[in-house]
Design a protein around this nucleic acid. Sequence first.
DNA 1: CGATTATTTGGCAAAATAGCCAAGTATGGA
DNA 2: TCCATACTTGGCTATTTTGCCAAATAATCG
Lengths: 109, 109
Amino acid sequence: MTREPISPNQAALRAHVIKSLAHPSRIQMVDALSAGELCVRELTALVGSDMSTVSKHLSVLKSVGLVSVEKRGLNQFYHLNCDCLADFFCCVDAISVQHTRNLQAACCQ
Amino acid sequence: MTREPISPNQAALRAHVIKSLAHPSRIQMVDALSAGELCVRELTALVGSDMSTVSKHLSVLKSVGLVSVEKRGLNQFYHLNCDCLADFFCCVDAISVQHTRNLQAACCQ
DNA sequence: CGATTATTTGGCAAAATAGCCAAGTATGGA
DNA sequence: TCCATACTTGGCTATTTTGCCAAATAATCG
């Protein structure tokens, strides 16, 4: 039952995926896309950056396979490829909630 | 049943946590720490960077509350504060496995 | 075809991250 | 007290990431 440590290679793979989610705008986009496909204009309105910026964020998400695109008419519709993100964000939120709680406990004692 | 989109603020909070895990060395460290506490020297041996670099990585993890420290003698023992990371990495790995599969399918067709 | 809308790409400057070395701090031992 | 070990911090450079603008591409419409 001795646990193998993760290989540097697998750590790099994981880091690559995690990096793609390590930006507020990309998190907002992925969250919105979990409710259904959206085009770039809609996502741009959501995050409030320049459309070129949003497009580049989307290409980051696409590069790790988190989203895919379908072209219909003038629009590129992006949709989410992952159904486990709820668990992912659940853990992320648990960490920040826990941390906030610790900070408060530390400052109010 | 209309889903509220995430607020920019909460997206920023999440991004902060996710960023702390968006580095191969920090992933290796967190993985190792999930099996029990380790001191900086041991973590340095694990990831193979300069000890000062490792120390800075640890302060990133500490800043989001993922790890905490206990000083005993000359050593600082770091331990993991989160028990949901397995789910987190499970999702991350699912994304990269899926992506690898898609890439192979695309290149072999 | 020319105009309009939707999106991507190139290019650049600003900001954030990473990693090393050197120096500083802290603890335990001779 | 002097020294070695363990760790953190400061400082600097190199790299990466971000975000805007302008220009290019693509598809639809008149």
